[in-house]
Nucleic acid binder design. Structure first.
Lengths: 123, 123
DNA sequence: CAGTATCCATGGGGATACTG
DNA sequence: CAGTATCCCCATGGATACTG
């Protein structure tokens, strides 16, 4: 198994390997959702504000092909499909954590600056 | 200062904040280069195989606007411009490290699998 | 050297309709 | 519910040429 969808160029450096796995437009956010809990398709669709069904499907398929995400279909009507993280997917946690920490720190920095009042900025 | 170029939507979650800062097509790789050492424009251009001048300039400008990268111009002929990381830029190191580690681990996994011989898979 | 400026192709992504 | 299938637009990014 390995980054099936991505371009088959030379392995290059480890950072690029990672980028090929989670560099997609929505993948990190999908991971964030799935780290919270196993989720169904529409659950993800609602959680990822702005994503289209097409993109969600596409990104999920790629992550599945790369072994990051497990897709479980319950043969019933109406259909029920659950997405969860594989062990490999869960091994991305340190990256997500680091991104979370940095974003939080960045946010705090801004709040420690002189508060630029949300003045008459209409619209 | 703060993610000047990115879309001005609501702050949302920390992970998204980070994505807005380094989610660009080439930014992580630029960071990787600049963590090695201060570099000049053409040095970066050569190091980032596949990137175009336009993209390199654009991504650097965005990272500069976001306070991640410092651009130093030496007023001389021919021009000399150096790019380095700001303190904020260097604070991204844990993320880069995590990505490096994961990519490396991934690579090792593949090598520890039964070697699927590069058999008669023509093309 | 370190960029702009232009033109152009690709595909990301929206909208809509349909299905097992 | 969880998709697939089309059609289509436009922003992103590539290639190329030019410049202080």
């Amino acid at each position: 198994m390995g980054l099936a969808h991505v371009n088959p160029e030379r392995p290059t450096c480890p950072v690029e390997t990672t980028l090929r796995a989670i560099g997609g437009r929505w993948k990190v956010l999908i991971l964030r959702e799935l780290f919270q809990e196993v989720k169904r398709f529409n659950q993800l669709h609602r959680a990822l504000d702005g994503i289209t069904q097409k993109m969600l499907t596409q990104q999920l398929r790629e992550m599945e092909a790369d072994g990051l995400v497990l897709r479980t279909v319950y043969p019933q009507v109406p259909p029920k499909v659950e997405y969860s993280l594989t062990e490999l997917g869960r091994s991305l946690k340190p990256i997500l954590d680091a991104m979370h920490d940095w974003g939080e720190q960045f946010f705090e920095r801004r709040h420690s600056l002189p508060t630029r009042s949300t003045s008459a900025e209409s619209r």
